[in-house]
């Protein structure tokens, strides 16, 4: 089954690909849809498919050395999934992927993925761009970790989420912690501190930001 070129073009990063590369992808790819709360792939299983998100959100989970699940990251429209696992020597899924909403994915088998990377140089370059972006994110986070206190990183991220329009879907404490380079318990404690200081109010399923100025001041806190 081939995928319509329109669906290929819906992935913003694919606009840089040559028409013949997009055609080759459309001939090899297929569409997968999953409901919310579904497991797309399991950590440790053979890496059989790579994906690009056409619609919806996904999170990556990994087992830590204590045997507890840890949230690694969240992904949304346009993001590639499981590519590192496919390109690694052992071809094993590096993480479990769970859907956070109904999701539509463009799927490519490991074999097709490997053929596309070896035949189409622009496809390989695009993957390098994705890796460069991820590396930049990690580098920025590392810089933030050394520059700003976790309190500041949390304040900044809360402002960022609240300023987004339309409002993004909800984030769990673990997901927030993974994004700002901290752990769930610390995020929980800081949210309680923010609430006690009148910066936020928490009510069922919501964090309501009350005071932009105070939160901005907290976001500049360099006391790491």
């Amino acid at each position: 089954m081939t995928v319509e070129l329109d669906q290929i073009n819906a992935i913003p990063a694919f606009s840089s690909l040559l028409p013949e590369t997009r055609l080759a992808i459309s001939r090899r790819a297929f569409i997968r849809t999953l409901p919310i709360g579904n497991t797309l792939i399991l950590e440790g299983a053979p890496a059989e498919y790579g994906y690009f998100i056409l619609d919806g959100e996904v999170r990556a989970l990994r087992m830590n050395p204590e045997g507890r699940i840890q949230v690694l990251a969240r992904f949304s429209v346009g993001d590639p999934l499981n590519i590192i696992s496919l390109l690694s020597k052992d071809q094993v899924n590096r993480a479990t992927l769970e859907t956070l909403s109904p999701v539509t994915l463009l799927a490519l088998s490991a074999v097709d993925f490997s053929q596309l990377t070896s035949i189409y140089a622009d496809f390989s370059s695009l993957l390098l761009q994705f890796f460069a972006e991820r590396l930049t994110k990690i580098t920025n986070l590392a810089a933030d970790l050394s520059l700003y206190a976790v309190r500041a990183r949390l304040a900044r991220f809360l402002i960022e989420l609240a300023d987004l329009t339309p409002s993004p879907s909800g984030w769990t404490q673990d997901e927030i912690a993974a994004h700002i380079g901290s752990v769930r318990d610390v995020v929980g404690r800081l949210l309680r501190d923010f609430e006690a200081a009148g910066l936020i109010q928490r009510q069922r399923g919501q964090i309501i930001l009350l005071d932009r100025q105070k939160l901005m001041a907290a976001a500049q806190d360099q006391d790491t």
């Binding site: 045997g67 609240a162 318990d185 309501i208 930001l209």
Partner: peptide, 26 residues
């Protein structure tokens, strides 16, 4: 919605998302 079950679950099977909004949006 105390989030205790989410924090206790060892496998990440429970998800209790929080929406972040400004007061005037609430």
């Amino acid at each position: 919605y105390c989030l205790d079950c989410e924090g206790l679950c060892p496998t990440g099977a429970i998800r209790a998302p929080l929406t972040v909004i400004w007061k005037d949006q609430s």
